[in-house]
Write a protein that binds this DNA or RNA. Sequence first.
RNA 1: GCGGGUGUAGCUCAGUUGGUUAGAGUAUCGGCCUGUCACGCCGAGGGUCGCGGGUUCGAGUCCCGUCACUCGCGCCA
Length: 598
Amino acid sequence: MHAYRTHNCGALTKENIGETVRLSGWIHRKRDHGGVLFVDLRDHYGMTQVVAKEGSEWLDLLDHMPNESVLTVTGEVVYRGDDAVNPKLATGEIEVVADDVVVQSRAKELPLPVAGEQEYPEDIRLKYRFLDLRRETLHKNIMTRVAVVSDMRERMKAAGFNEFSTPILTASSPEGARDFLVPSRIHAGKFYALPQAPQQYKQLLMVAGFDRYFQIAPCFRDEDPRADRLPGEFYQLDLEMSFVTQEEVWDTMEPVIAGTFEAFANGKHVTPSGSFPRIPYAEAMLKYGSDKPDLRNPLIITDVTSHFTTSGFGLFEKIVGSGGVVRVIPAPNTHEKSRKFFDDMNDWARKEGFAGLGYVTCKGGEFGGPIAKNHGQEGMEALYAELGLGENDGCFFAAGKESDAAKLAGAARIRVGEQLDLIDKDRFELAWIIDFPFYEYDEDEKKVDFSHNPFSMPQGGQEALETQDPLTINAYQYDLVCNGYEIASGSIRNHKPETMVKAFEIVGLSKADVEEQFGGMYRAFQYGAPPHGGMAAGVDRIVMLLCGAQNLREITLFPMNQKAEDLLMGAPSKPEPKQLRELHLRVVEPVKKEGEGA
RNA sequence: GCGGGUGUAGCUCAGUUGGUUAGAGUAUCGGCCUGUCACGCCGAGGGUCGCGGGUUCGAGUCCCGUCACUCGCGCCA
């Protein structure tokens, strides 16, 4: 007989009755009835009830063995009896009578119970991640993640993509996020950087003629986290294709993404491949106030600026007069809502740092609230007619500078949708957001800058760069969104060196700068570069959506906390002086704030 | 860097207007219990109320500071 097990803890059924088997696993829970003791023995595959009866030499040992201790149990499989069957358990018809027990590993008192689905403090969960990972939901989420990654890989291979690995130690890139740096021992004062994404490598693979690349790629960015953004490192389904238009990238990836979603959606609706809406960025910002709209939310924002060029409501008239805009977020069927509902929305907007959120109530066709009063009955009727609002629909107003108003309207759209419970949780609504602007005006630096990706191809190419107002140029740049999350981003790349130089010139960088900062790629483009493009999908976010988790830590094996610390391994840690010497480094502690220390 | 929330037993939480000895569940330990599956019953141990300062006759409760965890803003091509 095998030293540890003949079956796993989820395997035994009525078929095995009468067999002598050996199981190994953790003590999930025990139930002591004096003369009879039940032990739920758990492993990765399931749970089996072990029983020790009166007179058993193992009864006392098992009774005093702490939960989560690891045992090997040998004994006969018996039927539980008609009254004792547990239909909730796959092995619920049988149990194993303990004939021999070996304690492989005794557990101390647990800082974090494994059985049960209670919530526990984040720091304890992270410090004892190995225990947390034994718990049912997290264990299951991780296995879903494994299956999703495997599924994506199969679909990509089937679509003709080849999987490549690219370097982890690379060069710092001046664009984008803050890099993680790795000091060089051999080159004093020089550093490698961990890749923020394999962007340049995958483009070089296209130049090298490999045609279709993909990778489940680790990416490293030293930025502050969010619930949907892990600190430090995360994974992308990264891909690149040669000789393609952006439509071909979309057409290629829709079946992959929709296919993976459908495979793990548990019957929830998924936008079918071939019918992902393609929404221009400008339209998304107007209608949804966001470049990652949640299309489960039925509310649509409308611009009503023209209604307020002359209005009894002085504040909006003034905002419109000085070049601002007014946007409306409908609040359908709110005639029964109290004044508090509307006032609370305004308070919320102020708390979020906006000037305020106006509102109009409407009950049986009768308008209420200060805006309606001042704007006048006729004006309100015209407004409602244009918006198609009914006699019991209220609405909210976001007014101000266009970018601020759009942002507020977008946030308010989400909040109104939540408050009125308009969002269908059982859907995955996928859409492409396309035609992102190539440049944007940087208010802080007072200059034009790249708005997204400097490697993407401006629509209109070299000619647009030479003749158009830079702020009106769009890029062949697109995102994929799902339920309010950006789950992928990509573009057709700029493979023409002279266009690259021109594009960088507009943000104030010279040809020499381009050669210095993107030397490898710039050189590559001199020797025959295929037109190419691709995208990268956030594996973590997709898994989070598919698991119904609110937080990336719920789908990640060993995440760091919000301060980018690994509480289990103790990273980051102080190096030994010898290590620093070898790396030619000296630590300069930050200056302490006033009033601290001696 | 900034703003919000939370912090009371190993863990999950309650704790009234500031008022006597800070409670419950669970876990741990001891006892009882022959069919449970979140078993049940009896008992015991377990507290720097995150930390520091202040107000007060008196602080878990009020005020200031600080730390930890977290959510958001900035940031994230």
